[in-house]
Design a binder for these strands. Structure first.
Lengths: 217, 217
DNA sequence: CGCTGGATTGAGTCCGGTCAAGCCTTGTGG
DNA sequence: CCACAAGGCTTGACCGGACTCAATCCAGCG
């Protein structure tokens, strides 16, 4: 495994510390290769997951191959905590990743009454908020605004540091409802306007926060 | 009020019957005119709402006026039951409507422990599922597929009956991430292919379920 | 050093947006 | 009952942003 994207636990889960602790004690760490599936759509959701290193994406596929990415999960974030009994998206590692896995029933027996429920609740709530923000992006924003929003979001809590982008152009495109070519064009456009600067095609730095913020609207 | 859209309680809320009962006993019925606001975005969410007649939409606005509709709520459905402390969308009646309103704190004191929580949970869960389906529509479907999905959804539980569409073209457009003109064109296209038939511009009947379903993908 | 897969760039097309005209329904007032 | 106005819907002509297809570039790696 390369060191490139192993920013271990740099963004810890803000809530449910006791759950995370229980997962640490009782959970199993599993390694996933790039593009390896963590779970499948319509599979029963009896496990829960937490990203340790790398990054995970949730995707949904149409019969003709069109793909929509629901969300990206960075180290520290919980995922696969569906409200219903089934997974509504499939989940895949988008680069070599390690994920902590634990059976829900085990968590339940080892946690104070309601702790698991609270964690699921917090996660679902955040999930809904993210989906609602995503709707605005997909429904009403231009290609340039979508890409700007995306970079903004990635850079959010990175200070003025260089930000790593574990996902490739295709993943960005499928997240933003665009094509790779359009994503690429918008990125070069943002770069030539000196709004962001790319060290490599997976690493950038924001140069004009105000402009980027205004573009992301 | 015209009789056009008064399909009172034809689609009852499937879960949380005790909550609905409590709302019936303790809630207040309020009438809203077309386009009247039920609650505003970023307003504290201390009330909960249930559509009695008419229809309600939740919307989010961008600074330049672009609008995204989050969801439509038919009679019987609960809305405004946000997970967080604030409303993340504003809600408006899209035609003359009556809405049952009740303060959350009152519900809590009159219901068995956990009943309110369960209702909020069920609603949030359904909300998330709807948002996730919506993402696929906005991210990866063509104009024709979006409109087909929309009609499909409306007609879902209407049998082969004529289906009423309380919302205007602008509302459809803002829900589907399109313009009124495109929506209109797709509707005439679907009609001239004999897939659906419009009695008036707000009332239709599905003629070829299989084709519509395939289009909606 | 060449191979490979991802990223960029270019040329051309097309879907959906824009602008503008016309139509139809509904409601109002003479 | 008709005339007219107003708003919503449809239709047409045109435009442009994003897609498609294809060539090229580039970094990582054997």
């Amino acid at each position: 495994m390369t060191l490139a994207y192993s920013f271990e636990d740099s963004r810890p889960e803000p809530r449910s510390p006791s759950l995370v602790e229980a997962m640490d004690r009782l959970g199993v760490r599993m390694a996933f290769a790039k593009d390896e599936e963590v779970y499948a759509q319509d599979e029963p959701a009896e496990l829960m997951y937490r990203v340790i290193s790398g990054m995970v994406r949730t995707t949904r596929l149409m019969s003709d191959g069109r793909r929509q990415i629901g969300e990206f999960y960075a180290p520290g974030q919980l995922f696969g905590l569906e409200a219903g009994p089934m997974h509504r998206y499939s989940a895949e590692a988008l680069c070599a990743s390690t994920v902590q896995v634990i059976r829900r029933s085990i968590v339940r027996t080892h946690l104070a009454e309601g702790d698991l429920e609270r964690a699921i609740w917090d996660t679902t709530q955040r999930e809904l908020e993210r989906a609602q923000d995503h709707l605005m992006v997909l429904g009403r924003k231009t290609a340039c605004e979508r890409v700007a929003s995306f970079l903004m979001h990635l850079a959010q809590d990175g200070g003025s540091e260089a930000v790593d982008m574990p996902m490739g152009r295709q993943d960005m495109a499928d997240y933003l409802g665009l094509t790779i070519e359009t994503v690429s064009r918008m990125l070069t456009q943002l770069q030539s306007s000196k709004i962001v600067e790319f060290a490599s095609c997976r690493k950038f730095r924001v140069q004009k926060w105000d402009v980027l913020e205004r573009l992301a609207a």
